[in-house]
């Protein structure tokens, strides 16, 4: 029924349009004018419309920035993330300034130079000085942005592993995340996809000596202010590990290992104080991976060393886990 209604509405709309066009053409015939000729009156109306709608758009942008500001991600909870935030603020500030200068100029020119039959445009085909200026100015601004950007990038991608770095493997599969802690030796045991079997869902090679003390988990616990190196693997298709609160993202690619190192700076409990009780650090999948892509998540918990030690101790290591379940 609704479909029929839609069809009827569309037909009526089309019929109305035909009539509107006919009437306007007849009217202009009476006035002996070409209906599609752009008149001074049209130029006037359109110029004013550009002024109104153009500035309306700029107001809409400001309105969005004010109204939706509280929805944006909170400040970064990691060391490198804070630097990214600074760079973001500078870049955003810069592009907003350019936006709020160029757009009004555009809309104002359209209004100011709206045509009149009696007017003539000013013949002005080029001006080398002007063109050099507006090539060099963006070049300088962009060069400084590039330099600042590359410095931040270098720091973010830096994965110097020291003894205090916790090494954790994050393993992606349709549509789950799993984590593996490297245990006391701080070395992940080797793994191979052909060894995935039964409860050994990550394919860990138990003949490798460093595997025995590894621990598997469905959530990741981290210690505040302690560097962590995440190593990513995927079992099937490309996934992307996205931890927006830490400003961390890295693809998980079958057949290779990728990594991202960072240092968390705020515990989950601290975040709950500012962001509300239901706050959790979340790992999302950010590369299309199939039907449940939109619901592939794992909780991250940042806590104090003591809390972390208690939790880690309660986890079974791989050796006993896999042996008992066999």
């Amino acid at each position: 029924m609704t479909n029929i209604l839609i069809v009827v509405v569309v037909i009526l709309l089309l019929a109305t349009l035909v009539q509107i066009v006919r009437v306007s053409e007849l009217l202009s015939d009476i006035k002996n004018k070409d209906v599609n000729e752009v008149t001074d009156k049209d130029n006037n109306t359109q110029g004013i419309l550009f002024l109104i709608v153009g500035f309306g758009f700029l107001i809409f942008v400001v309105w969005q920035m004010v109204t939706w500001n509280h929805l944006l991600l909170p400040p970064a909870s990691s060391v490198h993330g804070a630097q990214i935030d600074t760079l973001m603020k500078i870049s955003m500030g810069l592009i907003l300034i350019v936006f709020f200068v160029l757009s009004p100029i555009l809309f104002y020119f359209l209004y100011k130079y709206r045509g009149k039959k009696s007017n003539k445009a000013y013949f002005f085909s080029h001006n080398n000085k002007l063109e050099v200026v507006w090539t060099i100015v963006p070049t300088i601004i962009l060069t400084s942005l590039i330099i600042f950007g590359l410095k931040t990038w270098d720091k973010s991608m830096n994965v110097d592993v020291s003894e205090s770095t916790t090494i954790i493997e994050v393993y992606a599969q349709q549509f789950n995340w799993n984590a593996r802690y490297s245990g006391q030796d701080n070395t992940l045991g080797k793994a191979n996809f052909r060894l995935v079997k039964g409860s050994n869902i990550l394919g860990v090679d138990m003949l490798d000596a460093s595997s025995a003390d590894d621990k598997m988990s469905r959530e990741v616990h981290l210690v505040i202010d302690k560097p962590v190196l995440l190593k990513f693997r995927s079992q099937d298709v490309i996934h992307s590990a996205f931890l927006p609160h830490f400003r961390v993202q890295m693809n998980c690619v079958p057949g290779m290992t990728t990594q991202f190192g960072f240092t968390p700076t705020k515990t989950t409990a601290q975040m709950k104080e500012t962001e509300g009780d239901d706050f959790e650090y979340i790992l999302l999948c950010n590369k299309i991976c199939g039907a449940s892509h939109y619901n592939m998540q794992m909780k991250f918990i940042v806590e104090t060393q003591e809390e972390y030690d208690v939790w880690l101790d309660s986890q079974e290591n791989l050796e006993s886990k896999l042996l008992t379940q066999k």
């Binding site: 049209d42 130029n43 160029l102 709206r114 002007l130 063109e131 070049t139």
Partner: peptide
């Protein structure tokens, strides 16, 4: 961004002191 910026500035300069007909 540099050649793109040049293009935008040149469009604005084309509109400047024009006799704009809004087709």
């Amino acid at each position: 961004a540099i050649p793109s910026a040049v293009k935008v500035f040149n469009y604005l300069a084309t509109l400047w002191r024009g006799n704009i007909r809004f087709t």
